[in-house]
Amino acid sequence: MSGNYFSGLFKGVKSLLVGMGETWKELWTKKVTAEYPENRKTTLFVSDRWRATLTMPHDENNEHACTSCKVCETNCPNGTIQVIQKVIETEEGKKKKVLDRYLYDLGMCTFCNLCVLTCPSDAIVFSKDFENATFTRDRLKEQLNKEGSKLREKKKEVKPEAEKSAPEAE
């Protein structure tokens, strides 16, 4: 009985001291806090595959690759993307649908990557600029195509990718 009492006491105290030893060791280890935003240019790591916000790359001629086929819009599970088309007349006098506005709501996006994966002309990509906080939700709604931009003329023949270009909409 008394043996139990004292051995219990000493064992308990020993276990506590071992625990304190571990924290003592940790007291001197390297600290892991990342000092954002000071480390923006130095140690901050953002993976290239990070999906922060959807962007539509434009080249130096203010041209993008979006054919406004709406595959991304139909694939998006929660209506984040809205592709608005307009009809223009080409030089040959044909009527043609082109992209008017490409609307993207960052606040709705779940970053599932389906739009980028299914885009037949690789017109959109996810960028890793993660600092997208705004004060109002409205400002999360963006137009991805720039003002006055137009569709890049393809030099090569567009591969007839039957699989990809068949939009899900019926």
Binding site: T23, E26, L27, T29, K30, K31, V32, T33, E35
Partner: peptide, 11 residues
């Protein structure tokens, strides 16, 4: 506390 917890604490 922060140092025990491998953090920097107020900085």
């Amino acid at each position: 506390t922060a140092f025990f917890q491998s953090r920097l604490g107020p900085n």
